[in-house]
Structure formats: structure tokens, C-alpha cells
């Protein structure tokens, strides 16, 4: 099931790694380097089926981008998962409470990463409705 996936990540090495893994598995990857670019790309037709986003980014961080996506009726159905190096205790809870549909901590496990992402694709939105505000 090849999908259109929007990848939002400011670190070039990590951007290349994740897009390589996804493309190697046959997915189409749209690339944005910060939350604002990500938001613009998400609004182009056709919209992505899944957004994978870093959290700490310049211009607009992942949390803010998520709020904009959830506030946009046209994008509200798209699952957004966080892939982040924030992996201390409490970080996953913070991410899920912010309204992300999934959480993968860095460093990612390349052998299982794609199947994790595909599981999120299949699962879709964790819950309907607007994101819980920060």
C-alpha cells in the first residue's frame, strides 16, 4: 500500500534517513524542513495520507504545526505522528496529550521503522475531533 507521506524534519541527515527508508518501501515522500513549510505542503492537492513530524524545528515547531493542521477542516482527518529525540520519561505522554496520533522516539530502529509507520497509516486518526490544546 504505497502512500503519500509528508515528512517534516529540519535535520538533513535524519530527513535523508527517513525518506530513504520510506521510499525504499515504495512510499511517496513530500519533504518540508520546518513546520510552516510542512503546513503549506499539507494544504496542496492532493493532501498527504500521513504526516511524520519532528518536534523541535526552527520557524514553526511540530506542536504548533499540529495545532494548525487540527484547526483546518480539510486536514483534520490526516494522522500526524511525532518522530522525536525527546525521549525522556514523560515526553511520550506530553506528545500524546498534545494530540499526536503516534510517537516514535529517536534513534529510530531502521529494521522496524517502516512497519511502525504503516501501522499508524492503517490505524488512522487516534480520535476524532480537535486536538487537545497545549
Amino acid at each position: 500500500m504505497a502512500a503519500r507521506i509528508l515528512l517534516v524534519e529540519d535535520n538533513p541527515a535524519n530527513l535523508e534517513l527517513v525518506s530513504y527508508l520510506l521510499e525504499a518501501a515504495g512510499h511517496t515522500v513530500l519533504i518540508a524542513e520546518d513546520g510552516l513549510q510542512g503546513l503549506e505542503l499539507a494544504r496542496r492537492e492532493p493532501p498527504p495520507e500521513l504526516v511524520i513530524s519532528d518536534l523541535r524545528m526552527p520557524v514553526m515547531d511540530g506542536f504548533e504545526m499540529l495545532r494548525h493542521i487540527r484547526a483546518d477542516a480539510a486536514l483534520n482527518d490526516i494522522p500526524v505522528i511525532a518522530v522525536t529525540a525527546f525521549s525522556m520519561s514523560g515526553d511520550q505522554t506530553r506528545v500524546m496529550l498534545a494530540g499526536f496520533d503516534g510517537y516514535i522516539s529517536k534513534p529510530i530502529v531502521p529494521e522496524t521503522f517502516v512497519s511502525e509507520v504503516e501501522a499508524y497509516l492503517k490505524a488512522g486518526r487516534r480520535m476524532a475531533g480537535p486536538a487537545a490544546g497545549e
Partner: peptide, 13 residues
């Protein structure tokens, strides 16, 4: 963790 992601990740690929 950020650079380790690329090191472990690309080694994996």
C-alpha cells in the same frame, strides 16, 4: 540522540 539517529539509522539501512 539526534546524530545517533543518523549513525544507527544509516548503518541499519
Amino acid at each position: 540522540r539526534t546524530p545517533l539517529n543518523a549513525i544507527i539509522g544509516f548503518t541499519g539501512t
